[in-house]
């Protein structure tokens, strides 16, 4: 562990943020031509591209389920997304994250509307600076909306961490590496339900409750940005149509 402190005397973090401040987040919708839905997110220095295909025929066919669509997700990190080149083969971490990302998004989708089909979500991490699973989930729910897939709500996600005995919002790479606990969560904000929670490190019950409340607040901020992005994107389309 470095000697450099992650939180300064006046309560600022290494990138100058307050403890409960999120990084600048910019979503973009409809960035790919071929995908049925797509979104791109810049979340601090984290950059992720998500494409959604479907509902479409499931391949191989035995995967199909008679009364609903299946949801498949692939979270993948580009070899150049991190300091030291990562092998492009899926790691155990990527396989686990693909599973929890799928399970975080699936509750939002009306899967019973598309029997025997699949919805495929592909996420490429182009640059990783912490919170990549949260950024992926948040961007993927916009890509699903862009694909016109009926959803109960958007899914908004953020990570909280314990760094030098303080609970901080929206974890950056160094804070994750040297922090003493990390807890990503995802919620459906207007339903107030949790679709993802993971935790590692050590927290007392009180710290956990505090961290959870802070994470919920962070998710609401992400939700606001997601909605703003959606609204301005569809306004542009509407204006475009009126000019036809």
């Amino acid at each position: 562990m470095g000697i450099r402190k992650l939180i300064s005397e006046d309560g600022l973090r290494i990138d100058g943020r307050r403890l409960d401040e999120i990084r600048p987040i910019r979503f973009k919708i409809g960035v790919l031509k071929n995908a049925d839905g797509s979104a791109y997110v810049e979340w601090g220095k984290t950059k992720i591209l998500v494409g959604v295909y479907g509902p479409r025929e499931a391949h191989p066919k035995h995967l199909a389920v008679p009364d609903r669509c299946i949801v498949q997700a692939r979270y993948h990190m580009a070899p150049f997304s991190v300091e030291e080149r990562k092998s492009p083969a899926p790691s155990r971490r990527e396989i686990e994250l693909s599973k929890v990302i799928r399970e975080a998004l699936e509750p939002a989708i009306f899967v019973e509307m598309f029997p025997r089909t699949t919805i495929d979500i592909f996420a490429e991490v182009l640059q990783a600076d912490g919170s990549t699973r949260c950024a992926t989930i948040s961007a993927a729910s916009l890509a699903l909306a862009d694909a016109g897939i009926p959803m109960r709500d958007l899914v908004s996600s953020i990570a909280v961490a314990k760094v030098e005995d303080q609970i901080v919002l929206d974890v950056k790479d160094e804070e994750d590496k040297h922090g003493s606990a990390d807890m990503p969560i995802a919620i459906m904000p207007s339903k107030n339900v949790i679709t993802l929670i993971q935790m590692d490190g050590m927290l007392t019950y009180e710290e956990f409750k505090k961290a959870f409340e802070l994470a919920k607040k962070g998710c609401m901020e992400v939700y606001k940005k997601q909605r703003e992005t959606l609204e301005s994107y569809f306004k542009e389309i509407k204006v475009g149509l009126e000019n036809v």
């Binding site: 799928r102 107030n192 339900v193 679709t195 929670i197 590692d200």
Partner: peptide
Amino acid sequence: EHICAMQKGGPGILTPEELMRAV
């Protein structure tokens, strides 16, 4: 007592109250 790991699995949802109760 400290919480040292947590994970939700499966495609369902948890309410905040259910999560607190589980913990």
